[in-house]
Amino acid sequence: MRLIKSTIHPAINDLSANSFTRKATRAIVLNGENILLLYTKRYHDYSLPGGGIDEGESKIEGLIRELKEETGAHNVTNIREFGLYEEYRPWYKADFDIVHMLSYCFVCDIDDELLEPELEMHELDNGMHPEWVNIHQAIAHNEQTIASSDKKGMSIERETYLLKLIEQELL
């Protein structure tokens, strides 16, 4: 899979610090200029559906599971690689200083009808829900959040970069 981008968070000065790797998938589902995204009220941002790959699970199995859990999408077909986004980010829990985040991005198709999502409690607490959004509006929204919000999460830069690349390469 092609490497889209590799980033190191500005708060990290030493990559030899105690770290772990987290592998995740991200789904790119388009319908014209509309894209299936997750809106998170807590961070006031849009992100691609996806999440951590479970132990013993392939990237594709993780993609399909996460897409179903977060959006209710089913009958995932025509899966193709888009690229890998690599990040080194601070980790704020005991045992590690850095998380090496690998986000494997795939383009895919789904059935038109979304079933009920199976969101985790912390996702519900953060006000997360799936939404079809015009990609240009999602990019503008995230850029506004980056520029003016103190609520933004660490992933918004990745998500906005990916949305712009999707816009450039797939529309």
Rank of each mutant, 00 (worst) to 15 (best):
Met101Ala: 08
Asp109Ile: 04
Gln168Leu: 05
Asp111Gly: 12
Met121Asn: 01
Leu37Ser: 10
Leu37Thr: 12
Ala73Leu: 08
Phe106Arg: 09
Leu115Ile: 00
Leu37Tyr: 05
Trp91Ala: 02
Ser149Gln: 10
Ser103Val: 09
Arg22Cys: 10
Glu55Leu: 15
Trp132His: 03
Ile166Gly: 01
Asp109Gly: 00
Ser47Gln: 07
Asp150Pro: 00
Asp112Trp: 11
Asn126Glu: 14
Ile79Tyr: 04
His141Arg: 06
Ala147Ser: 14
Asn75His: 13
Met128Cys: 03
Glu87Met: 08
Tyr92Pro: 01
Trp132Pro: 03
Asn13Gly: 14
Ser6His: 12
Leu124Ile: 13
Glu86Ala: 10
Phe96Ile: 09
Leu37Arg: 10
Phe106Val: 06
Asp45Phe: 05
Lys93Ser: 02
Tyr104Gln: 04
Glu120Trp: 13
Thr21Lys: 09
Met128Trp: 03
Val99Glu: 07
Thr160Gln: 02
Thr145Gln: 03
Gly72Tyr: 06
Glu86Gly: 02
Gly51His: 05
Asn75Met: 09
Met121Phe: 09
Thr77Val: 10
Asn34Leu: 07
Asp14His: 05
Leu170Met: 15
Glu66Trp: 01
Ser47Thr: 07
His9Asp: 14
Glu157Trp: 13
Gly127Cys: 01
Cys105Glu: 04
Glu118His: 10
Thr145Tyr: 03
Gly153Cys: 11
His44Asn: 14
Asp111Lys: 11
Asn31Ala: 11
Glu87Arg: 12
Asp112Ser: 08
His129Phe: 13
Asp125Thr: 00
Ala27Val: 05
Glu169Asn: 10
Phe20Gly: 04
Leu163Met: 14
Leu114Met: 07
Glu131Arg: 09
Met154Gln: 03
Glu55Val: 15
Pro130His: 07
Arg2Thr: 09
Met1Ile: 14
Arg158Ala: 05
Tyr88Asn: 15
Ser16Leu: 12
His9Cys: 04
Ile135Ala: 03
Thr145Asn: 03
Met128Leu: 13
Arg26Asn: 13
Leu124Pro: 02
Ile139Asn: 05
Met101Asp: 05
Val133Ala: 06
His44Ala: 10
Thr77Lys: 15
Thr40Pro: 05
Glu131Val: 15
His100Leu: 06
Ser155Trp: 00
Asp109Asn: 14
Ser47Glu: 05
Ile35Trp: 11
Glu81Ala: 08
Ser19Arg: 12
Phe106Trp: 11
Gln137Tyr: 04
Ile8Gly: 06
Pro10Asp: 03
Gly153His: 09
Cys108His: 06
Glu81Leu: 08
Val29Gln: 02
Asp95Lys: 06
Asp112Asn: 07
Asp111Arg: 08
Lys152Phe: 10
Ser47Asp: 00
Thr77Ser: 15
Leu48Val: 04
Lys93Leu: 11
Glu143Met: 11
Gly51Pro: 01
Leu37Met: 13
Glu70Ile: 03
Phe20Asp: 04
Ala11Trp: 09
Leu3Ala: 00
Tyr39His: 14
Glu116Asp: 12
Asn34Ser: 10
Glu57Asp: 08
Thr25Glu: 02
Ile98Arg: 04
Glu169Trp: 00
Glu55Thr: 14
His129Leu: 08
Asp54Val: 07
